[in-house]
């Protein structure tokens, strides 16, 4: 185990949604390279409490890249420098002694800041509420093996279902668009046989809910590069194609396949 010394942190502090925020500088004199990035912040918070100051507020829960709660812009990059890695999985060994590290919350109009580094991502929930499900009332579901799902299809659904709803794609996008998230949610259900009945209705409703809250996609591709689950840009293509079809005149025919 090695130690990193003399890190200069510039951390965004903001008391509430409607107050002006500012950067605060903290020196971390020593931290183990085995510590995770959030553990480094824990240690800083312990020190702040020791100095009778308010701890820095940030979102986190599972701390293993599964829940999508953690959300930090680190040196201008959503979830920091490491590819396919959430903030909570990022370890200090990725940094070096003496580094300056700028820590900000997700910056996007659709994710208002709650306090310090914590943002409100309920705009994502509203997209899912508009259609990100299969209508399957409890009870009476047919035997799961009655509808065979080809392995490549279930694998493709799983690739999209891996999205953890963290919002890095939106934070990384110059337009604050949510196309990668919405595309992932649509692609997960729209490729499965079980999702066909509501396929086009789903695409239409979710894209509309997205457009009401988020910016427009201009194909920068920053989203996929920032995504900790490496969701592919293909999901956006699938979403767009299903959305277009949902608008076509003979949409009633579409659900017949």
């Amino acid at each position: 185990m090695k130690h990193l010394t003399n890190l200069k942190l510039k951390v965004w502090r903001q008391d509430g949604p409607d107050v002006v925020g500012k950067f605060e500088t903290h020196i971390v004199e020593s931290v183990s390279d085995e510590a995770s990035f959030l553990e480094m912040l824990d240690q800083l918070n312990e020190r702040l409490i020791g100095e009778n100051k308010d701890a820095i507020v940030f979102d986190h829960d599972c701390r293993e890249g599964i829940c999508g709660t953690c959300s930090l812009m680190i040196n201008g990059r959503a979830h920091g420098p490491q590819r396919a890695t959430t903030t909570c999985q990022l370890h200090m060994r990725t940094f070096s002694s003496g580094d300056e590290i700028v820590i900000e919350p997700w910056r996007a109009a659709a994710f208002p800041i709650i306090k310090d580094l914590m943002v409100d991502r309920s705009s994502f929930d509203r997209i899912v509420e508009s259609g990100g499900f299969i209508t399957a009332l409890t009870g009476g579901a047919p035997d799961a093996n009655l509808i065979p799902v080809p392995k490549p299809v279930s694998d493709a659904a799983m690739d999209s279902a891996a999205c953890i709803g963290c919002g890095a794609c939106v934070a990384a996008c110059p337009n604050g668009a949510a196309n990668l998230f919405t595309g992932a949610k649509i692609a997960h259900l729209n490729v499965l046989p079980q999702g066909q009945a509501e396929r086009f209705k789903r695409a239409e409703a979710m894209v509309n809910a997205m457009d009401e809250q988020f910016g427009s996609c201009t194909n920068h591709g920053e989203c996929s590069a920032a995504c900790p689950k490496e969701i592919s840009l293909d999901v956006i293509a699938l979403m767009n194609s299903d959305f277009r079809k949902s608008k076509s005149k003979n949409r009633k025919q579409l659900s017949r396949g």
Partner: peptide, 10 residues
């Protein structure tokens, strides 16, 4: 069965 019907990609 229920979970598969809801779209969980087992």
């Amino acid at each position: 069965d229920q979970m598969v019907a809801q779209g969980v990609p087992f």
